[in-house]
């Protein structure tokens, strides 16, 4: 293992992290809710009675790239390495997995760890471990795969 100093971006990473933490703190203090994104979306699909609150939260997330563009004048330029088939398979796995786990990177990885929840620690170790193993498998062992 070697650190890629060319792409390592400690400043923006920390600044963005502080914003995410502030959003989680704001949600629980003002609305009494956990800022868990899979939970917000999943609850909406299950037709929970607080749909308007969930929709408002999700609308804020969807609006973020537009507000970012207005403020900075730049547009997002992400790199999607995955093929369409891989995106579909990955999307289904993320959807099913986060519902079974009752949370994702935000609900367990940020809010749960901040609450010192043993469940969230186990979940975070499991999804990080599976993420590391999957990338290792596909980037280094199965490079010929589509």
């Amino acid at each position: 293992m070697s650190i890629d100093w060319q792409v390592f971006s400690p400043g923006p990473a920390l600044a963005g992290g502080l914003m995410i933490g502030a959003a989680a703190a704001w949600f629980v203090w003002v609305n009494g809710r956990i800022a868990g994104i899979s939970g917000m979306l999943g609850g909406l699909l299950e037709r929970q009675p607080d749909a308007w609150l969930r929709l408002a939260f999700l609308a804020g997330l969807l609006a973020a790239p537009w507000v970012y563009g207005l403020v900075t004048g730049s547009t997002l330029a992400p790199t999607f390495g995955a093929s369409m088939l891989r995106l579909v398979i990955a999307g289904v796995l993320v959807g099913v997995g986060t519902r079974f786990a009752s949370g994702c990177t935000s609900g367990h990885g940020v809010c749960g760890l901040a609450r010192r929840s043993p469940r969230s620690l186990a979940a975070t170790l499991a999804f990080m471990g599976a993420g590391f193993a999957t990338v290792y498998l596909f980037n280094h062992l199965l490079q010929a795969m589509p």
Binding site: I37, A82, I89, L93, V96, F100, T105, F127, A133, F138
Partner: peptide, 16 residues
């Protein structure tokens, strides 16, 4: 669930 989620995350680099 977390393991299944982690595999999907590793396949595409996207979480929710």
């Amino acid at each position: 669930g977390s393991l299944v989620f982690g595999v999907g995350w590793g396949l595409a680099g996207l979480c929710p």
